[in-house]
């Protein structure tokens, strides 16, 4: 009950921030439109919609870190969390209360990307549904990061780290825009060791119906996701103890 009450509140706070709509829901969609316009005017296959739309959902999901971290940092700075710590709310109420509302937002975000893809000629298949389903573990990884950064950084730092750095890392190291093999070397090795590339590969494999290819990539995403969430919960609990 408390958890749902708090989750409802978190959802309202996120959705009532106009930046959420502009950057979170709108920006990835605009990028799909722009890159598709470029694709229409070049003779080689740079941004095929069947690979671009699933990839862009992952870029969109990186904004979930910004949303959750901003909300938590704001609650810490305004002492709203202090007020709630002094109520009968338990640690689980806070953690799920911040995490649960991101799931429908993440699914909606992914649906916008796939929806724009459909408008641009992407084939409507049942795999879109699976794509939305597999977006959830990817979103949980980004929410785990949000919970972690929101617990240790202030709003300004969150804006810089999650709004600028993380979204750029996701964009460049994920292979959405270009094949990582074109760069190769250390760049590709680093990209392979991080979850962003695997998240994109996961979404693209699911949408293409190549389910055997899902397995190694979902392992990376879940591994990073579980690590981020465990770390975030530990840091959040430590912050609770400090009051």
């Amino acid at each position: 009950m408390r958890m749902l009450t708090f989750a409802k509140r978190s959802l309202k706070e996120i959705l009532r921030d106009p930046l959420t709509l502009v950057f979170g829901l709108g920006f990835p969609g605009i990028l799909i439109l722009l890159l598709s316009a470029i694709q229409a005017n070049v003779p080689v296959n740079l941004f095929e919609i069947d690979r671009l739309a699933p990839g862009m959902t992952v870029f969109g999901l990186s904004f979930m870190t910004l949303f959750s971290a901003t909300l938590i940092a704001k609650d810490r700075e305004s002492a709203f969390l202090i007020r709630l710590y002094a109520t009968p709310m338990k640690a689980a109420d806070f953690i799920f209360g911040y995490t649960l509302p991101i799931v429908p937002i993440a699914v909606a975000q992914s649906a916008v990307c796939y929806g724009i893809g459909l408008l641009l000629g992407m084939e409507p298949t049942v795999n879109i549904f699976y794509g939305l389903l597999f977006a959830i573990p990817i979103a949980l990884f980004f929410v785990g990061l949000g919970l972690l950064f929101g617990s240790i950084l202030n709003q300004k730092q969150v804006g810089g780290l999650c709004g600028a750095l993380l979204t750029n890392l996701t964009a460049w190291l994920s292979g959405i825009w270009f094949d990582l093999e074109l760069v190769g070397g250390a760049f590709q090795k680093i990209a392979n060791a991080l979850p962003f590339y695997h998240a994109v590969q996961l979404e693209q494999a699911v949408f293409a119906g190549n389910f055997p290819e899902v397995l190694p990539h979902i392992g990376w995403v879940l591994g990073y996701g579980v690590t981020a969430i465990v770390l975030a919960v530990a840091v959040f609990l430590e912050q609770m103890k400090k009051g």
Partner: peptide, 13 residues
């Protein structure tokens, strides 16, 4: 009940 030094309200609500 506690009312902290800062205003501690949910600003978007």
């Amino acid at each position: 009940g506690i009312s902290p030094q800062e205003t501690a309200v949910a600003p978007g609500l």
